[in-house]
């Protein structure tokens, strides 16, 4: 890395001579070390999944969840520094609540993404702070339909059909593209219910058994079945999807 030692990479308030903000780039490095987080937008809702890496086997099973609710109808899955994730989630909840307070109506995913993005961006402007080491996936169903966004540490955000962040995002994206392409080619798109097993499969595929620690699969959705509320995917459905994912993985291994 040419940036190291130049002195232009120590603060977000300093550009390098070629116009880069290295501190923001370094912040994205923190994201790349985190367990993968995936979001998929279906015709009837959205689904979020994360690979919750377990750094100790003494951790309570099913606890320490990484997905947060920002409002009744919006969920957030972050990848990066866990504590930064909690910070952004709290800010997101405040923004969503403030929108309701002001306008007496639920915030749309787009507007909430915009507000969170502005917040993250502010942390890339001043030497007195560091950027968030966090990529944030926001998903929800609002009056405009199912919506999915991803906000980077720089504050830049885009809407997505499907998105993956964290370790192994490249592989996850390839798999997600296959799903989305089918839809583009005119085949009927997935329902969230069908997508549960797809997301489970992708996360199991991305997880590197040899290199990574153990993990737990965490999944939430917003769809008609959940009353258009952000809720955990029902335990039985999740267990079924996990079993299928494991089976598919073993099958794939045998083929190799």
């Amino acid at each position: 890395m040419t940036s190291i030692g130049t002195g232009y990479d120590l603060s977000v308030s300093t550009y390098s001579p070629d116009g880069r903000l290295f501190q923001v780039e370094y912040a994205t490095k923190a994201v790349e070390a985190a367990g993968v987080a995936v979001g998929l937008r279906c015709k009837d809702g959205i689904i979020l999944g994360v690979e919750r890496l377990l750094h100790s086997k003494l951790l309570v099973k099913g606890a320490n969840r990484r997905i947060a609710s920002l409002d009744e109808h919006i969920g957030m899955a972050g990848a990066g520094l866990l504590a930064d994730g909690k910070h952004v989630a709290r800010r997101g909840r405040e923004e969503a609540a403030s929108f309701r307070e002001n306008y007496n109506s639920p915030v749309t995913v787009q507007i909430l993404s915009d507000r969170i993005s502005a917040y993250l961006q502010a942390y890339t402007c001043y030497g007195s702070v560091r950027p968030f080491g966090l990529s944030t996936i926001l998903g929800g169903v609002d009056k405009t339909g199912p919506k999915l966004f991803c906000i980077e540490p720089s504050g830049v955000y885009y809407g997505y059909r499907a998105v993956a962040v964290g370790k192994g995002k490249a592989l996850a994206k390839t798999e997600l593209e296959k799903i989305v392409n089918k839809e583009v080619e005119g085949q009927t798109s997935l329902t969230v219910r069908e997508a549960v097993s797809e997301i489970a499969r992708i996360i199991y595929l991305v997880h590197d058994d040899n290199k990574d620690k153990d993990f737990e699969l965490e999944m939430t959705w917003v769809c008609e079945e959940s009353g258009n509320k952000h809720a955990p995917v029902p335990a039985d459905l999740l267990a079924e999807a996990e079993a299928k994912a494991k089976a598919a993985l073993e099958e794939g291994m045998e083929e190799d």
Partner: peptide, 26 residues
């Protein structure tokens, strides 16, 4: 190694909490 070579730019990534290292560590 780099640090020892750069005496005029005494910089490192561990002297304050608002600086990420190039690996994304704090």
């Amino acid at each position: 190694l780099l640090l020892s070579n750069l005496n005029e730019f005494r910089n490192s990534y561990d002297s304050d909490n608002t600086t990420f290292s190039p690996q994304g560590k704090l």
